[in-house]
Design a protein around this nucleic acid. Structure first.
Lengths: 255, 255
DNA sequence: TAAGATTTGTTCGTATGTATC
DNA sequence: GGATACATACGAACAAATCTT
């Protein structure tokens, strides 16, 4: 794990005890190369290992828990365990960073237009039938044009799930996370801020056709075409959402 | 702030009390539209507002503190305050997500090659003389070819700072964070894993020339050229680092 | 099903540390 | 330096969850 912030001399002792304990435990996990699911020392042991009160130790554990680094269970066989940070939690934590910042729809699409085609191109000819099938299953949610605004919103969320799922299939975890994060932000905007487009049969038709073409290109292994189709798809989506003029994302996080 | 994870019926009560309190405080901040620096209720008030013990409240505050959402100060006038999540902390928290995942140099550069030229292109003609001067000042660190491996490493870190700084100058906070995060990862790899290139005068010359050309293009407002130069620069950097065959990033986080 | 063991979760009272006036 | 207002830390007890028998 990462070392901690710059420490002016004497800072070590000024640093709160829970922080100190949390750091020590992180170091301990890294040094031993512990893996998710591995057991950590129990409260009782930590108490006398560090010579601190129970409350102090527990505060340290909460610091780690909030970061998704540990999980705790009660009862026999319970205790603290190394936890794998989930994509959802990482998204939520990163979302906090943008809470007080100004991020526009255009900002998001500038990045999406650069990354989504890249992913699509790299995935051509590399997806299993099961994966392609799963994408097609998601598309069922918008097989028919939306009748009202509410359904339009549901369809939009489903189409974002299409992209999120696609981002899971690539071998590049970094690229996958970035793309999934943006899909998450847009989903939040759609659901939470009730941002939606009034049903428009023409756009529905075009968007759906894009995804059908995309699937075909992915299946046949036509990388260049997958990339081009995705790019068109993104540009259309951007124009669509920009029309809404909704801008910021005002959302915080999970635990 | 974001709502919390899916709640099966009854989960509300099973959720630990610190978690419940942390959620409530997040909601409170969002509802009132509090800004960084704004005061939160003191321990005493929270204790009787929620009807819980001090320890419980304190654990809740640690959950929020770890996410960078609050800061606390002791003494008169002290207490808890809404905190702005810093870029450094967000990077560190996100870094944890990748700790147990496999991220290769190639993964990083695949994304860098897509995003850095985008940023460079959008910045052409938009930087102040002060900003351009700052970039040039960073370049001073590698005005001369490195004499040994240690200096080579320092130069590499400086050149990454060049990119990190550039990412701050753009108006797109999302794009800026992604680029800065990758620069951070590469810096960690360079410093922490002692990944470095043996000094190579030819490559040093080419890399430096790229950045000089880039500055010139940025200054003159030649967007297409800035983009092209950055792309060449990234491709060279990728080849350089790939030769090291260093792969994973093994690093955790700060507090 | 029930009882017991184990481990985290929560409370309360008290004392200490720290920064401001 | 002393008083004040806050967070920080301690320790002992009790509650709740969950596994085993």
């Amino acid at each position: 794990m990462a070392e901690n912030p710059p420490q002016d001399p004497g800072a070590r002792s000024r640093r709160s005890r829970p922080l100190h304990v949390a750091d020590a435990i992180k170091d301990w996990v890294v040094e031993r190369g512990l893996q998710p699911g591995d057991r950590l020392p129990g409260e009782a042991e930590l108490i006398d290992r560090f010579g601190m009160a129970k409350g102090t130790i527990r505060e340290a554990m909460r610091l780690l828990q909030a970061q998704g680094l540990i999980e705790t269970k009660t009862g026999p066989g319970g205790g603290s365990f190394v936890g794998e940070v989930t994509r959802e939690r990482a998204s939520a934590l990163l979302g906090n960073y943008f809470y007080f910042r100004h991020v526009t729809i255009d900002d998001i699409y500038q990045v999406r237009i650069a990354l989504e085609p890249l992913l699509a191109g790299s995935l051509a000819g590399r997806l299993s039938d099961a994966q392609l099938g799963e994408l097609e299953a998601i598309m069922e949610a918008y097989a028919e044009p939306a009748a009202d605004a509410e359904e339009e919103r549901r369809q939009h969320v489903a189409s974002l799930r299409f992209h999120a799922r696609l981002s899971d299939f690539g071998g590049n975890a970094l690229l996958g996370f970035f793309i999934g994060f943006m899909a998450q932000i847009l989903t939040d905007l759609t659901v939470y801020k009730r941002l939606y487009t009034t049903p428009n049969h023409d756009l529905w038709e075009k968007g759906r056709q894009h995804q059908i073409d995309l699937i075909a290109a992915l299946r046949s292994g036509d990388s260049a075409r997958a990339k081009a189709v995705m790019r068109s798809h993104m540009e259309m989506a951007r124009d669509l959402m920009e029309a809404q003029q909704a801008e910021v994302l005002k959302r915080f996080i999970a635990e």
